[in-house]
Write a protein that binds this DNA or RNA. Structure first.
Lengths: 178, 178
DNA sequence: GAATTGATGTGACTCAGTAACATCACGCTA
DNA sequence: TAGCGTGATGTTACTGAGTCACATCAATTC
C-alpha cells in the first residue's frame, strides 16, 4: 500500500501500473491481485475491520442509548483505532484520492458501505429503518469530516476529539434545518 | 443503452462485452466509447442534464424560500422530467444495478455528484455550507427513495408525488432524531 | 526425510479503453 | 453538378487490468 501511495503521488494514478507497484513492493502483479481485488482497492483495504468495529460498538452499547448516542459510540470506537503515527500516511492518501475521480468513486462507495453496516447494526438494536439509515449517514458524515480535518494538520487534536466535535456540529446544523 | 440493459439482464454485467453491446445496437466498440466514457457509464448517462435542472430550479426559486424548500423545488423539477413511459426501463435498470457491485458503486457516485451540485447551488443562494450540504443530501436521499418506489410498481402515483412524500417523511424522521 | 500447506512466481489469455488513420454520408457552395 | 468540408463511424493495433492454470519454494508436521 505504501508503494502504491508513493507511486500514485509521483506519477498519478493512471500512469502507475500495477506491475510497477508490485515490483516496488518486491512482488509480482499476480501477488498484488491476490491481496487486492483491483488496482484501487490497495488504497482502501481494511474495510471489513472498520465494519466489525462499528458493529461491535453498537451491539455493546448500553440499552438506554438513543440512536445518535449509538452512532456516537460507534464512530468513537472507530476513531480510536487511528493512532497518531498514521496521520501522515492519511494525509498523503487524501491528496492522492482528491486528484483522481476513480479513487473518489471508490472512497464514496466505501463510505456508503460503512453507513449500511451501521444502519443494520442500529436496526438490530430496535431502531426503525428510516431513523437508523439517517443516523448512520450522519455518523459517517461526521467521521469523514473529522478525518479530513485530522489529516489536514499534523499537530491538531486527536481524531476522537474531532469526531465528537463534528457530530455535535452536525446535530446543531440539523436543528436549524427543520 | 437499451441494448446494454438487455444484455446485462440476460447474461450479467461482466459476461456481456462492450463489443456485444455495440453490435446489438448496430455499432462498433469504438463508437460505444465515443458516447460513453466507460462500460458502466452507458447506464448512467444524462447526469449533466440532471445537474442543470437542479441548478436552475434552485437559482429560480423565490427569495423567501428556506433551504429545505429550495431542495424541494429542485427535486420536484427533476422528478417532473421522468415521464410515465420511462418507468419500465427504470425498473429493469434498477434490477441490473442491484445485482452488480460495480454498478452500485457508480450509482452511489452519481448520487453524490448530484448532491454536490445542489450544495453549490444552495450556497450561491446564501445558504451556509454545512446547512447546504445536509439539505442537499436529504434531497438526494428523498429523490432516490421516491425513484425506487416509483420504479417498483408499474401503476403507483407519479414520481413527483412520491418525491414530495419522501421528503416529508424524511423531515419528520429527522425531528425524532434530535 | 517425505508429505502437506500456504504463499509466491510464470506465462498465456480476455477484455476494457486509447489512439491513429480511413471511410462515408451530409450539406454547402462555386 | 462537381467538389469541399465536416461530423460520425469503422478499422487496426496497441497498452494495461484482471483471470487462470500450473510450477516453485519454504515452513510445518508426522
Amino acid at each position: 500500500m505504501r508503494a502504491a501511495v508513493d507511486l500514485f503521488a509521483e506519477q498519478g494514478y493512471e500512469a502507475a501500473t500495477v506491475q510497477e507497484i508490485a515490483e516496488r513492493a518486491g512482488l509480482t502483479k499476480t501477488t498484488f491481485f491476490r491481496h487486492f481485488s483491483d488496482k484501487r482497492e490497495v488504497l482502501f483495504a481494511g474495510q471489513e475491520t472498520h465494519r466489525r468495529i462499528l458493529d461491535e460498538a453498537i451491539a455493546g452499547a448500553p440499552a438506554t442509548a438513543t440512536p445518535l448516542e449509538l452512532v456516537a459510540t460507534a464512530i468513537d470506537a472507530l476513531s480510536a483505532t487511528f493512532a497518531e503515527d498514521r496521520r501522515e500516511l492519511a494525509a498523503r492518501l487524501r491528496t492522492v484520492i482528491a486528484r483522481h475521480n476513480e479513487l473518489q468513486e471508490r472512497a464514496v462507495f466505501k463510505r456508503t458501505s460503512l453507513a449500511s453496516a451501521m444502519t443494520e447494526a442500529l436496526q438490530l438494536r430496535g431502531v426503525p429503518a428510516s431513523t437508523a439509515s439517517l443516523a448512520a449517514d450522519l455518523g459517517v458524515r461526521a467521521f469523514h469530516q473529522a478525518f479530513d480535518r485530522w489529516a489536514e494538520s499534523s499537530d491538531g487534536p486527536p481524531l476522537t476529539t474531532l469526531t465528537r466535535q463534528a457530530l455535535d456540529e452536525l446535530r446543531s446544523t440539523i436543528a436549524t434545518l427543520v
